[in-house]
Each structure stands twice: as structure tokens, then as C-alpha cells.
Design a protein around this nucleic acid. Structure first.
Lengths: 143, 143
DNA sequence: ATAACACTTCAAGTATACTTGAAGTCAAGC
DNA sequence: GCTTGACTTCAAGTATACTTGAAGTGTTAT
């Protein structure tokens, strides 16, 4: 166990595949906890920044704007006062992501249908056969 | 069967929950097939526009930019020439969406973990009990 | 006939999330 | 000692995807 591991901006940038400029931008936008500095002024990140960045990526990739993410972290600063708001936000967002997941599955099915369709079109060209119809590749509907 | 159903911009707007301005914008961006007009100049949409808008929404919501979507539809205009490109695009995008789906599932798990965590925090406040640790709510890792 | 409503065009404006560029500081290597 | 490289600040610029506003046209309701 290394309890006090420190990271440079480059290390963080590589870990999260985010440009250094974006890390500075997030800091300026108060999405990150205060960042320590070497005596030459270079940023030093620690475990809490890793955790925070994981949360940011999670929220961002599930459709929350940076300003809502900032709002969430601001509530977190005084948990006792804001615990009900925090619970409401995460519960609602869980619901939203559940819906997004279902939509993503439907979108994947649609795209898969296109894969099958264009491959069949290609076969038809090769064989000089008549064209298939896109809707023939729809998943069987259970009615 | 109603083979030639026509739709006004308002009907389409309601069906897809897209403002009329966005439909005009998509048309200007050449994402839609040519749109017919009444003799007063009002737009008339048909089934092919519905199909196209479904495809646009699917692609857009799975991370394709409007300019890539436009590129896709441009290839579609001459299928015989571009069938291999079309197959490559949809096959690659299917792969990308599969990855996104897996990420979305991890994100949902992370958010669910937060729901459990904040609820436990609230319980701790009520009982004046010690605080739980976020990582205690992590899904069991199979190592 | 007059008002309300739904549409039209076209140019300009906006929101979000970065990204870039200029100018400067510092430590290490030749 | 001088260059290279990695960092720093700060202001300004950019990409994407719309959105808004002004001005006009034509059908419908009172």
C-alpha cells in the first residue's frame, strides 16, 4: 500500500486520456478539489483527484453537463445539509441512465439490422439478384 | 394500409420531439431527402422522412456527428459504388456502440453504488452512527 | 375586415466544452 | 552557458448543434 501517491498532470492526462488543458479547465471550473503545487508551481494530484475524475467521467458520459456535475460536488461539500438533494440527484440520474441503456440497446439492434441489410445488398449485387428490403431484417416483433 | 401518408412539420416535430427549427436545420444540412411543399410553400414530409429521422436519431444518440451522418447518407445515394464503405461504417459503428453499452453498464453500476452510499450516509446521520465508506458499496469484484 | 395562427426565409446569436497561442519559468543534459 | 522539454498563466479562438428574431405570407375564426 502506498498511502500518499502523487501524480503529475501528465500522468493524470495519460490515465484518463484527457489533455492537460482539459484538466486545467476542469480545475478552473471548480470540478476538482484544490490542487497542490510543487514550489515551482507545477500541479500535484492525489487519490482524491483520481476518484473525482472517475466520477466526472461517469457523469459526463451519462449525459450530465459540467455545470450539473459542479452542482453535485457543491452539495457534497456539506453533506449533512444536502443529503436529501444528493439522494434525489443520484436516484433520478440512475433512472435516467437506465432509460438511456434501454435506448442504447434498441439503437444497437437498429445498427445491427443495418449491418445485415448492407451485407445482403452486397450479396444481391454479386448475384445480380433482386434487392432485399430493410424491414425484412427487423428483429421479430412479439405482438 | 395508407400508402401515401403526408405529414406537416408540426406532426413530425411532435413525433420526434424535435423543434420545427431543428427539422429545417437538418434539411438545410442535407440530412433529409428533398422535402415537398404545398403550393403555399409549407413542408410536406412522408414515410422516407420518418425512416431517415429514425436513422438520424439512432446515429446521433450513439455518438455520430451530424457531418458523419451526412457522409453516411451521401454514400447511400450511390450504394453500388459505396457498398463496401457503408458496410465498414455500420460494422465499425456497431462495434463502437457495443463498447459504449458496456461502459454505460459500468456507469450505471457506479451510480447505483452512489445511491446506496448516500442512503447509508443518511441512515448514519439519523442514528448518529459512524459514516460508511464509499468503497464498501462497490460491486463484488471477481478476481 | 381584422385578428390569430401556422407556417415561411435568412441572418445572427447562443450554449457547451474545450483548445490554442503567446509569453514566461524552471531543471536537466550537452 | 545554452538549449530542450515540460510545465505555467491568461486571453482569445473554435467546433458542434442548434436557437432566436425580424419580417413576410397565407388560411381560419369571429
Amino acid at each position: 500500500m502506498e498511502p500518499y501517491k502523487r501524480y503529475t498532470i501528465k500522468e493524470i492526462s495519460d490515465m484518463f486520456s484527457l489533455p492537460s488543458s482539459t484538466l486545467r479547465y476542469y480545475e478552473e471550473q471548480e470540478l476538482l478539489p484544490p490542487v497542490a503545487r510543487t514550489k515551482q508551481g507545477q500541479r500535484i494530484y492525489s487519490q482524491e483527484h483520481l476518484d473525482r475524475l472517475h466520477a466526472i467521467e461517469c457523469f459526463k458520459n451519462t449525459g450530465l453537463s459540467l455545470s450539473k456535475i459542479r452542482g453535485f460536488f457543491e452539495y457534497e461539500k456539506d453533506m449533512e445539509t444536502n443529503i436529501d438533494n444528493l439522494i434525489e440527484i443520484v436516484t433520478q440520474h440512475e433512472q435516467s441512465v437506465t432509460v438511456q441503456l434501454a435506448e442504447m440497446e434498441r439503437n444497437l439492434a437498429h445498427i445491427h439490422q443495418k449491418v445485415l441489410y448492407y451485407n445482403a445488398i452486397k450479396e444481391a449485387y454479386k448475384k445480380h439478384a433482386p434487392f432485399p428490403c430493410f424491414h425484412d431484417f427487423a428483429p421479430v416483433s412479439v405482438t
